[in-house]
Amino acid sequence: MTNEQMTPSETEPTDDQTTPTPGTDGLADTADSGWETTTDRTLLEARDLSVYYGEEQALSDVDIEIPEKQVTAVIGPSGCGKSTFLRCINRMNDLVDSARVEGELRFDGKNVYDDDVDPVALRRKIGMVFQSPNPFPKSIRDNVAYGLKVQGKKDNVDEKVHTALERAALLDEVEDQLDSSGLDLSGGQQQRLCIARAIAPDPDVILMDEPASALDPIATSKIEDLIEDLAEEYTVVIVTHNMQQAARISDKTAVFLTGGELVEFDDTDKIFENPEHDRVEDYITGKFG
């Protein structure tokens, strides 16, 4: 059994630098194939991570190891700190004046809260997709090229824009109108545009903060398909309030409950079929939250 991986705090710090990433990423068999092998290389690792907004604690002593090139879902009731956790990873919390972070968050072994880390440089390795689509009032092309522009990646821009749009499953729909405004697209298309924008500079990680919550069911299912595909290339961390969505698309699931506490983190199937904690079971089955 995978008992010792139940709670991350009990997990030994893995030999993440030495274990090679297995070829079997488990992408295709996410849904049904039982629990994953846990020898996957850890890309992101939190140790005693706490966040305070002023006096209020939004995240308390989170320990977690997020594997590379898989989809990790973060679920929990509203106000449980799941978005806060996501925004710790690329230090978007730095933009909130009152926010204070304690503990460590390691990206490939490097603590991103070290003094010598420039959050701007960090964010260039991590793409982010937000709750409601927020394309810039620019052309579709300029939207996708935005990251390349600000990161000074000036080579083959057109080619990279095309590739990103293709990966975001949007190219077919917009190929003839790359110069029209991103705001003219439908909500679902806008969100895929934002995903294209996030992946164009080729980051290692993509963070998604409830990316489908503002979309209709058809647009949502397109985004979900896309997220599963993205995990072939990228490490995806997705916050969602929709448990079915987490069950459908993720390999791993982290359950945050009130007070910013990470209660359980495990393979998605395990979480939804046989959670370790009663509180998690209550939440999953809808008795709470």
């Binding site: 990206f107 490939d108 072994g109 490097k110 010598d116 420039d118 701007v120 440089a121 390795k125």
Partner: peptide, 14 residues
């Protein structure tokens, strides 16, 4: 394997 480099870019900061 070396750690990723997120260090400050002098010109950018200046």
């Amino acid at each position: 394997m070396s750690q990723p480099d997120f260090s400050h870019d002098g010109i950018r900061t200046a």
